[in-house]
Design a protein around this nucleic acid. Structure first.
Lengths: 168, 168
DNA sequence: GCGAGTGAGTTCCCAAAAGAAACTTACGCT
DNA sequence: AGCGTAAGTTTCTTTTGGGAACTCACTCGC
């Protein structure tokens, strides 16, 4: 029996979960995003087993989310750094953090962000890229996109039709 | 040996991962957010094993992310629906979807959103809640927040200090 | 030159979680 | 009485994860 691969699903969420869909990968990325970039430092900070950390780092490099930047040859030693793709994944981390700040810490978070351009303590909000207004779930409705495949996801197709019917 | 509980870490990301930190939970939430709200329908759509689905739904109800809304007694049958907390988690799904739309589908996503108030096809962008400008990783720097605990996360503390030093 | 230390894995063994598929319970329908 | 349906539960087997010890290729202090 194989571990279920999610990428066969025609869904952006499923595809992304093939990269970050486990307990450790997002925390590894968080550490690297904060500048904790070496194997032993990450291992010590998270307490993850060395075997699992090796597997996760290899997978992230494989997915081009991380790059190994050598800081020594003989023996080869690297810093792990985010690629541009990794920076985009950091936005997912930010969303996880926002949720935890609100629901696990009641607005007294362990870490805050200062927005460099405006200088203020900043919490990211999801906004519509067209009108710039903040978007909450319920403010937008899902529709078939260019690569939607009717036959491979009949239950989703039906759900979309029901939503479309409800909103004219 | 126990499965590692992440909530002991003083980190909003880790706390949130105790709820959605596996391959199936986010997909279950996605289905429910789209209106696929019954056990068999979710199971058929995702192909997840019934045992795992039971465990995930129970955990989500436990975490108050979902509620069971009865549609039949004798035998008891429920629709699963998102709570307000669940709606907030949907923002994490949105971030996962954004990433997948860009990196797994190259901008040709299977599902799009129409923003009801402006009527346009909308992609959510993370924006600063103070100045309203879009935020990219690198546009903001992390600082100690009110509940930061110096001693329990020395590696993070050091990383924050380095960042603070670099940005004055 | 030699033993101790460091960084990054690798290997082994055992416990826990996931997958598949069959079984159960409590109905409603004909 | 027998079939169908919804929502689990159980059993059995394969994978994956945790913990700790081991390896390898150096560097440094003496």
């Amino acid at each position: 029996m194989q571990r279920r691969i999610l990428s066969d699903q025609q869904c952006s969420v499923a595809r992304t979960l093939d990269i970050v869909g486990d307990r450790w990968t997002p925390l590894v990325l968080r550490d690297i995003a904060l500048g904790i970039s070496r194997f032993d430092a990450i291992q010590a900070d998270l307490g993850v087993s060395r075997k699992v950390l090796t597997q996760r780092l290899d997978a992230l490099v494989e997915h081009a989310v991380l790059v190994r930047v050598p800081y020594s040859e003989h023996p080869p030693r690297y810093d792990y750094r985010l690629t541009e793709k990794g920076d985009d994944l950091a936005l997912v981390l930010l969303a996880l953090q926002q949720f935890g700040d609100k629901w696990a810490y009641g607005g007294e978070p362990p870490i805050q962000w200062r927005h460099l351009s405006c200088g203020q303590l900043s919490a990211p909000v999801a906004c519509c890229d067209k009108c710039g207004e903040p978007v909450r779930p319920g403010d937008a409705i899902p529709l078939r996109g260019p690569s939607f495949d009717e036959t491979s996801a009949p239950a989703i197709a039906e759900a979309l039709d029901e939503i479309a019917a409800a909103f004219g």
